[in-house]
Amino acid sequence: MTDSKEAMFRRVERKALTHMHHGYLTIRNVRQAVSRFHFDAGYAILSAAAVKDDEVEQVLTALLLLEQGLSIHDDVDRCQSSDQGLIVLAGDYDSSKYYYILAGVGDSALMFSLCEAVVQINEAKMALLLSTAPLSTNEYMRLMKVVEGQLLKALACHYLGEDGQWMLHIDSLVQAYIVQDELRAHRFSKRLTTRQASEWLSHSLEQLEMVAGGALTNPLYSFLVEYFGPIRETVRDLQLAEGKG
């Protein structure tokens, strides 16, 4: 991780939190945050595309506002009914600020692509929410990858083109992020077995290792290598737990 990346994160985080801020939401303790994972992945994509710092700052601020605006709405049934309205409005406010920033950037094609991603994310969330039959783990992972990864794919598609290799690696990255998140939240007993998690993480690692050596100097691949380091340890632990060590 470079200093300039950390400096960019601090600037983007500060900017996004300033946009999210509303005095009354603060008084009522509506806590908001930005996703470090989405920043890191977005930063790697924009660095790979050699986007200038000013634009990186604007686009990532908008992306993180959008990501937070959508994800805070998942909490609407987790809070007290007296706070539900504020959760709804906090998310709407974040989304309005994302639109405000992108309107300033003036890139209609990017706006169109991100909106398409939001459409697909909400379709996936509805499918996860209202599925009448229990979802297979593969179907669950497919939908979750849309929820967590579609904004990043839209960004990569816009800046790097629709090259299948980019998409494959972003897909692996997002899959690893979801598995890690599931591990942290201890949701495996409900959704996934440790064996399945281990297999998915191994698969993601195999996909990464297929990358040609020269490509590893690319910012996106470098980030993938950096991100997958700790995951390698997790996979080893899981395999030991499964008696495969």
Binding site: G69, L70, H73, D74, V76, D77, Q84, V88, G91, D92, S95, V118, V119, N122, E123, K125, M126, L129, L130
Partner: peptide, 10 residues
């Protein structure tokens, strides 16, 4: 409620 949130965002 969640479905209403997703519909509005969509």
């Amino acid at each position: 409620n969640l479905a209403a949130m997703y519909t509005g965002d969509y």
